[in-house]
């Protein structure tokens, strides 16, 4: 069995590598090179698209401007639905960047044949395939909602930990930990699981059969970006409005 697996492993597109990284040294610190390479690609794509869309703005949009306006309008509606008409505007850049970055990362991982580029160790994949990226995103979301709460309500924000009943304090504190945990693990698990499933199927039948699963992967990738952005909006809204009306989701 081992031999058989090794033979299939030698196929160029079908290698399964989990948890291997291209390490870069930065002073005393180690960083994951492959994550940064793909994230720079995604960021570059976003910046180029933004510059191209706003270089020559017209009242009647065409081409890339139209596309980016559609994206912006989508993001605005998303933020408006979650945070509310009155306060959503300052949060559009944050939620929108989360959405666009995650969406492009996921799709770049699912659509681009990164594996054709050989690295000394590890492989190029979606940046969201790495736990560091998703935890970074989730921690930023936590910081964002803390910032939103403290800026809006000052120290009175702390009062929400005693709502609706004071004995809920430990649960409320625990929630601040479970929120980023569930956010990051949801994204990480979905993307990694998707790549693993596709990888396994490609390993078994490297022809046509994996295509439906790949399409499903594209769908989940998009949905996960939407879910992350939506939840970030929900958490920010909760911090702005108090504890009462937010949904409890983990």
């Amino acid at each position: 069995m081992l031999d058989g697996l090794n033979i299939t492993n030698s196929l160029p597109l079908a290698a399964l590598e989990v948890g291997r990284h291209l390490y870069w040294r930065l002073g005393n610190f180690q960083i994951h090179g492959q994550v940064f390479l793909t994230s720079w690609f995604v960021i570059g794509l976003l910046v180029i698209a933004a510059v191209a869309a706003t270089r020559n703005v017209q009242r009647i949009p065409r081409g890339i401007q139209n596309l980016m306006e559609y994206a912006l309008e989508y993001i605005r509606n998303l933020a408006k639905d979650q945070i509310g008409e009155k306060e959503y505007r300052p949060w559009v850049p944050f939620i929108g960047t989360l959405f666009l970055f995650i969406f492009l990362s996921n799709w770049s991982g699912a659509l681009l044949p990164w594996k054709l580029i050989h690295l000394p160790s590890g492989e190029l994949a979606a940046p969201t395939n790495d736990i560091n990226t998703t935890v970074a995103l989730a921690l930023l979301t936590s910081l964002a909602y803390f910032y939103a709460g403290f800026r809006k309500r000052g120290l009175g924000y702390m009062a929400k930990y005693l709502e609706p009943e004071p004995f809920m304090l430990p649960i409320n504190i625990l929630e601040d930990f479970t929120k980023p945990l569930s956010l990051s693990f949801r994204l990480f698990g979905n993307i990694l699981a998707d790549e693993l499933v596709v990888g396994v199927l490609v390993l078994l039948v490297p022809f046509i059969v994996p295509i439906p699963v790949m399409l499903l992967g594209l769908f989940t990738s998009a949905i996960q970006a939407l879910v992350f952005a939506t939840l970030a909006g929900v958490y920010i809204h909760e911090a702005l409005e108090g504890h009462g009306e937010g949904e409890e989701e983990h």
């Binding site: 930065l26 994951h32 976003l46 869309a53 736990i131 560091n132 935890v135 970074a136």
Partner: peptide, 24 residues
């Protein structure tokens, strides 16, 4: 495997938010 990727990614994303805010 948590390492310096995490804080660097956070900084990178904050910069991205600011850059996209100005550009987009």
């Amino acid at each position: 495997d948590f390492d310096a990727t995490l804080p660097l990614m956070m900084i990178q994303l904050v910069v991205l938010v600011l850059v996209l805010d100005a550009l987009f």
